[in-house]
Write a protein that binds this DNA or RNA. Structure first.
Lengths: 314, 314
DNA sequence: CTTTCACTTAAGGAAAACTTGTCTGACATG
DNA sequence: CATGTCAGACAAGTTTTCCTTAAGTGAAAG
């Protein structure tokens, strides 16, 4: 009756069997024969002194002891696998995993990736478009590009340039709505993806900055910034969009920025990675490329007037 | 360069070495020779392709890869050990681990344990006196006795009798302070351990229940209920104490309850265990004994007037 | 200068884990 | 109702892993 850990291979066999609820599938996962797995389970049961599985005719089910052991075993092996692959990743200079929000991925990263791939053919880039927060130390992600006013504690954080929003529309619409005042009659497109900001950086704020009364503003709402910009490209209306989201569409003539008035928000994009990861070549390469790519468009809109949203009186 | 998990014995060797920062101690922990451990670490490093430790003259230190791997490895093995011992515990009908707050342990459980041990010699009882919440499913604890108004979700919960508080003091002091009114001049002992209750169940509440003005009340404060009762036993003053904390001291004459007025709180002690653990013999035995032991003192203080603290106007 | 300490290296042997092959019992199909 | 199939159990033999003993290295401590 030892209280020490049982043979780990047996435990792992149990974990696989419990996850698949099948000895055969577990054996396949571990690349062993079903016989070997059966033996491992049996030996674990002998160690414990009680069965972990109830053998039914064509299936197995966990006994109470099995149900007690399974979650913890799974958790344990998950942590080990996790730790091991993190360590492997540390040594792998050929792949780079980047996470960014869906909007930035669609409107900024994706159109430029070909360029990065061409200048760094040795790096295999993987994109993970998701808003959910990742733990760079635990998840298999090397770089996160995040929008907000985050504290980024314990991380290497490089904020990108000032972030501001302007109305954008198709050239057609721009002719119909020549002044900020006239926008009050335009179909408005609202980007709800940044509604968490405080102070809010939305159509009412921009109208106030422009000195136009901000009555209740109807219009179409989108939960994702890229969808809002896409809608504007399609001529559906006038969107208030963040700078990085519109660069390509403006450069290629689908959208125009008729009014030289933008509202600035304190929230920024930041380039985040672990401090100890800053030295890894693929991360340096990507960061250098990322920042250089941003600088390329530094003097677009040099003539625009940028008003901090904090200064726009409510 | 397999991405699969490396040999688990090697990983465990690494975990032990990283925790002790010493191969020799790790070898001792795993009951192997230092040579075997050295070999395991070496094989793990070969698997990974890079050293995990930097061998110094008389010590080892982790490389960056080692620092990346160590926390996750520790977490993983901790989870496995945890899961295994929980499962063992499930089968072990000879030991029973109970956690309770320090006050109940000192004033109620400890004095009665001899009785339990005598009637159940086959059960080895372990007490863990701590206020910190335990996860019965994760920690090595079978039964928790907790005070409060908890929801006890997912647990088998048996609340014990109505909980109320009365002033207690030594017989000497009782002569000097014959009326509730006179207590205003008595040295008061405050039990801060239940200050989290709302509505508060403290001296001001009792005085209001007694119809005595509750000016600011100086006195000695204790963070633990048992210390407050001990102080009262020592004649330091008058304590407002919960029923279970004073039974023994009253039965044995160290304390008296001169005023037949108690304030009742909604918070109770509950006997908590996992639903699936209810069947285990040592848990049933302990619960039966616990509840019977409480019933033994059911008709102490039959004549006391108990006022719910909610009814005591602020 | 010698001792000691912590880890390494090498070789042999014990214990584990795996494979092949056979067997059992129940479900499912014709 | 017979039979093919499927999931797992069991046995024997082999491979691999793992551990031990014993000798060795190099730096710090006495």
């Amino acid at each position: 009756m030892s209280d020490r850990l049982p043979p780990l291979t047996a435990l792992r066999a149990f974990d696989a069997a419990a996850r698949h609820m099948s000895f055969a599938m577990a054996a396949a996962e571990l690349n062993v024969t079903p016989a070997a797995l059966s033996f491992q389970i049996k030996s674990l049961e002998e160690h414990l002194g009680t069965p972990l599985f109830r053998r039914l005719n064509r299936a197995v089910e966990l006994t109470e002891a099995g149900r007690t052991l399974a979650p913890g075993a799974d958790e344990g092996f998950r942590a080990l696998t996790q730790a091991w692959s993190s360590t492997r990743r540390l040594l792998d200079d050929t792949t780079l995993t980047v996470t960014a929000g869906p909007a930035l991925t669609a409107k900024w990263l994706a159109p430029r990736l070909f360029d990065f791939a061409r200048s760094h053919p040795e790096i295999e880039l993987r994109l993970s478009a998701s808003l959910k927060m990742v733990d760079l130390r635990r998840d298999d992600v090397d770089v996160a590009i995040r929008f907000g006013t985050g504290a980024d504690e314990g991380l290497s954080s490089v904020p990108v340039r000032r972030e501001w929003m302007v109305p954008v529309m198709t050239p057609d619409l721009a002719e119909r709505f020549p002044t900020p005042q006239s926008l009050r009659d335009a179909p408005l497109i609202h980007d709800d993806s940044i509604s968490f900001l405080n102070p809010r950086c939305d159509w009412p704020a921009w109208f106030r900055a422009a000195g136009v009364a901000d009555d209740p503003l109807p219009g179409t709402h989108f939960s994702n910034a890229d969808h809002a910009v896409d809608a504007a490209c399609a001529g559906l209306g006038v969107a208030l969009a963040r700078r990085p989201m519109i660069i390509k569409d403006v450069q290629e003539g689908r959208l125009v920025v008729p009014f030289k008035l933008a509202i600035e928000t304190r929230a920024r994009f930041r380039f985040l990675c672990l401090p100890e990861a800053e030295k890894r070549p693929q991360i340096r390469a990507f960061r250098d490329w990322f920042l250089a790519e941003i600088d390329k468009t530094a003097d677009m809109w040099a003539d625009i007037e940028i008003i901090p949203v904090e200064d726009v009186s409510e």
